[in-house]
């Protein structure tokens, strides 16, 4: 039965080879941190938190178990990895400072997308990065961001920054102070300007145009563009591309939220009563129980302000000839 022995040997050889090869290949994965992404209701990030050491490169394999996700680390600009279903994206993470970092999903993967966040604990020598050196403005001002903030007055027509340019020379320079603009709502600014004796002869609409211009002067084309990008990637799915609160998920926010009506960013009565600092607070802290996520660990301070600046472009006519800007 020589041939029978040969046949048996071949069978054993084939399957032992196959399993050995597979075993070796699988063990290769041991040094790598494998992170899988699924929709939050199916588990989100696995693992949900991990540890890294300062200065030591960490090799991470990212893969998705269902739909397209994205991987980014909060407050680290310019780094984003696609996490594709069944495909592996290899990234190398190096942290220069210890602290606690948030990593999050960057691609909308369902109404609960924003819940898809994890924590990286970075240990080792160095000055802790996560400590907030200065508190955000809304905290320093002690604004109650959950309070109602109706606009005391609203403009007769949509204020236009372009229209305000011709009158800007009449405006005292105090109105251009960043601190004042960030801490007052456009309606408050309007009321102050209105009562300013130097502007007595200017019409209400013209004052509103000046208000629009004042906020425009705080920002730039580039910042508005970046703000728009941040808005469409992170906010539009609920708030709507136009900001009217009609995003694709507006009707199906999680059941545990109060389903508070999503604000209409184009509504002057609602928006013009809010100061940039208040809006910053809402973005940074999130609206407890309303389904609005907190972005404090994700956006940098600068990014938050760009978003706020972009929100004003829904109230004011911002397209403005670069040449005519002072």
């Amino acid at each position: 039965m020589k041939s029978e022995t040969l046949a048996r040997s071949i069978v054993i050889l084939v399957f032992v080879t196959l399993l050995t090869w597979l075993g070796l290949a699988a063990s290769d994965r041991m040094d790598i941190l494998n992170i899988t992404a699924s929709m939050p209701e199916r588990g989100g990030w696995q693992p949900g938190d991990f540890t890294a050491r300062v200065g030591e490169p960490l090799l991470v394999h990212l893969t998705s178990h269902d739909v397209v996700h994205g991987f980014a680390i909060g407050q680290m600009e310019g780094f984003e990895a696609e996490v594709l279903p069944g495909k592996v994206t290899e990234v190398e993470l190096v942290f220069s400072e210890p602290g606690t970092y948030t990593y999050y999903c960057t691609r909308w993967c369902g109404p609960n997308h924003w819940r898809m966040r994890g924590t990286i604990t970075v240990i080792g020598e160095g000055k802790p990065e996560a400590e907030v050196v200065t508190q955000p403005l809304y905290l320093r001002l002690g604004i109650d961001i959950d309070a109602e903030h109706p606009a005391e007055t609203i403009p007769p027509g949509k204020p236009s920054a372009q229209e305000g340019i011709g009158l800007w020379g009449m405006v005292p320079s105090t109105y251009a102070a960043e601190m004042l603009l960030r801490s007052s709502s456009p309606a408050e600014l309007f009321i102050r300007m209105r009562s300013d004796s130097g502007l007595e002869r200017v019409s209400d609409q013209a004052i509103w145009d000046l208000v629009a211009l004042a906020y425009w002067n705080l920002t730039s084309e580039a910042a508005l563009e970046e703000g728009q990008r941040l808005f469409s990637e992170n906010c539009a799915a609920c708030h709507g591309v136009s900001g009217q609160g009609d995003g694709v998920f507006s009707g199906q926010l999680g059941e545990d939220t109060h389903q508070a009506a999503i604000p209409d960013f184009t509504d002057p009565a609602r928006m013009l009563g809010a100061s940039p600092a208040l809006l910053q607070g809402k973005i940074v802290r999130g609206g407890m129980g309303t389904g609005m996520p907190y972005w404090g660990t994700i956006f940098t301070d600068e990014q938050t302000w760009m978003l706020v600046d972009y929100l004003w472009s829904m109230q004011f006519d911002y397209p403005i000839d670069e040449g005519s800007k002072e």
Binding site: F15, L18, A26, D66, G86
Partner: peptide, 20 residues
């Protein structure tokens, strides 16, 4: 061996069908 890989693939591989 092919069917072995089919069985193994489903158990250890990605749950994304088109990539498994």
């Amino acid at each position: 061996a092919g069917f072995g890989i089919v069985i193994l693939g489903g158990l250890v591989g990605t749950p994304v069908g088109s990539q498994n």
